[in-house]
Every structure is written in structure tokens, then in C-alpha cells.
């Protein structure tokens, strides 16, 4: 072995330059192009903190009287939209999740996967755009949009829970002469339900945030109130919207998270 080969063996291996470096470079270039394309010049950047600070200074003091009268009912409506949407999604997704389990129904599962992938592709606000002309402006359209778009994720997560199940009990029911459906009812459902319910609750938390923005396209909830207060430059009222939304969402997240932990622990 010659010296140079030995040296190269002793040398500490550097970080692998290759794919990671290429990606980093590509991101940097893309970032530069993006800044340029949307007109984010340095002068513009310096204006941003000032602009934000100026608008924020108008937010105080918050108009809490408006908050209690108008904002709270709108937030309650958002919660109701999220709840009904989650219920719709739970009812539709439970059978889909069971039939979407690859281990139980290999052939059906492929079709179910397609349905759930399609449902997941649509953000709820785009669905709401279609539901508003069908059932009219308001919370009902929002609840339908949330329900349909939640089906995809709940089906996927539910099917994964079923797939991860130990199938001893299913085989036991079938060995004792039970049908596939009876096996579902007595062996699968009791085992997967706690985890699936925890997923429903988690989706409910996500849906609260989603329903808060649906008002932008006229589908009810607190989003429309915020849009209007900002549009008419009623910043003190907008502040009330933000404060109440933050408090309510934090409270619901905490409660729901606590329940989820209890359910999972059993």
C-alpha cells in the first residue's frame, strides 16, 4: 500500500457532499428567486416591522363589549360547526376505516384508500365554496365542508389502527363459527374503538381551527367577523376577536387533549 492511500485512509471522512448539498443549493436559489419575484426588496423588508407595529398599536384597548356581544356567539357557532363536522366524519369514516383495513379486506381496501386520498386532497375551505351555493350562506355549509374533508384523514388513521391489530381474536371468532361481520363486531371493534375515538377528538381540535376560517367564504363562524372588522379598520374589535379565539381554542385543546390521554390509557 502506498503512502497516499494510507493517508486517505487515516483522514477523517468529511460530511457527505452530494445530494444534501445539491438540495441546499437548490433551496437557496429558489429562495432568492422567490424573494425577487414577489417584490420583497430590502427596502420593503425594513418597512414590515414598522407597519406591523403601527397596526398593532391600534389594537389596544380591545373592544371587549363587542367581544361578548358579537364575537362569542360567532366562536360558539365555529365550535358547533366543528362538532357537527366531526360527527358527520366519524359516522362516515368508521365503516370506511374497517373496510379500508388491508389485513381484513385486501380488495376493498384499495378502493377505500382511493376515496380517502381524494377526500384529503380538498382543503375544507374549497369544499365550502361549493357547499355555500347548494345549502345557502351559513354554518350548515361549513359543517358539511368540514365533515366531508375530515372523512379522508379519519379513514386513513382508522384503517391504520385496524391494520396494527393482533388478529388472534378475529381468528378465534371465525374458528368458533362466527362470520366476518361478527368478527368485526366482537373482535375488532372493541379493540380499535378507543384509539379511533382519540383520533376523532384530535380531528375535532383541528376542525375548530378550520371552522374559524370558513367565514371568509360565507360559511359561518368567527372568520367572517374578523374579516369584516379588519376590512372596516375596527382594530379594537379585531383585537377582541383574536383574544377570545386564542382563549377558547387553548381551552378546548387542553380539555380535549386531557380526554384523549385518558381514553388511550384506558
Amino acid at each position: 500500500m502506498n503512502i497516499s492511500r494510507q493517508e486517505s485512509l487515516l483522514k477523517r471522512p468529511g460530511p457527505p457532499v452530494g445530494f444534501g448539498f445539491t438540495v441546499a443549493l437548490a433551496i437557496l436559489i429558489l429562495f432568492g428567486v422567490s424573494l425577487y419575484a414577489i417584490g420583497f426588496t430590502p427596502a420593503r423588508m425594513l418597512e414590515v416591522p414598522g407597519g406591523v407595529a403601527r397596526v398593532l398599536s391600534f389594537f389596544w384597548p380591545a373592544d371587549m363589549a363587542y367581544g361578548w356581544d358579537r364575537v362569542l356567539p360567532a366562536i360558539v357557532e365555529s365550535i358547533q360547526i366543528a362538532w357537527i363536522g366531526t360527527i358527520i366524519a366519524a359516522i362516515l369514516s368508521l365503516p370506511l376505516a374497517l373496510f379500508g383495513a388491508r389485513t381484513l379486506f385486501p380488495r376493498l381496501a384499495r378502493g377505500v384508500k382511493l376515496i380517502s386520498a381524494t377526500a384529503r386532497a380538498f382543503p375544507e375551505i374549497l369544499l365550502a365554496i361549493y357547499f355555500v351555493p347548494i345549502v345557502g350562506l351559513g354554518a350548515f355549509a361549513g359543517a358539511l365542508a368540514i365533515g366531508i374533508s375530515s372523512v379522508g384523514m379519519l379513514t386513513k388513521l382508522g384503517a391504520e389502527v385496524v391494520d396494527s391489530l393482533d388478529f388472534g381474536t378475529v381468528e378465534a371468532v371465525e374458528a368458533a363459527g362466527g362470520s366476518r361481520i361478527q368478527a368485526l363486531r366482537w373482535a375488532v371493534l372493541p379493540a380499535v374503538l378507543p384509539e379511533i375515538i382519540a383520533h376523532w377528538l384530535f380531528r375535532f381540535e383541528l376542525n375548530i381551527r378550520a371552522s374559524a376560517v370558513l367565514g371568509v367564504v360565507g360559511a359561518g363562524g368567527v372568520g367572517g367577523v374578523l374579516l369584516n372588522t379588519l376590512r372596516y379598520r375596527h382594530f379594537d374589535k379585531a383585537a377582541a376577536v383574536l383574544i377570545l379565539t386564542i382563549l377558547v381554542v387553548l381551552a378546548i385543546d387542553t380539555i380535549s387533549g386531557e380526554i384523549r390521554r385518558k381514553i388511550i390509557r384506558g
Partner: peptide
Amino acid sequence: NILRTLPDLFWAMLFATAVGFGPVAGAL
């Protein structure tokens, strides 16, 4: 936690008001 509480469109509305309509507000 507070950052996470507000949905993306709320931030967009706030920044659109603060720095004017357009992509800069969206990027922020």
C-alpha cells in the same frame, strides 16, 4: 402555543392589513 392557536388565514388577514394586500403579506 399562542402562535399555534391562530389559523393560517387569521395571520394572512392580519398581515394583509398591516403591510397591504399582496404576496408579501402571504409570505409573512
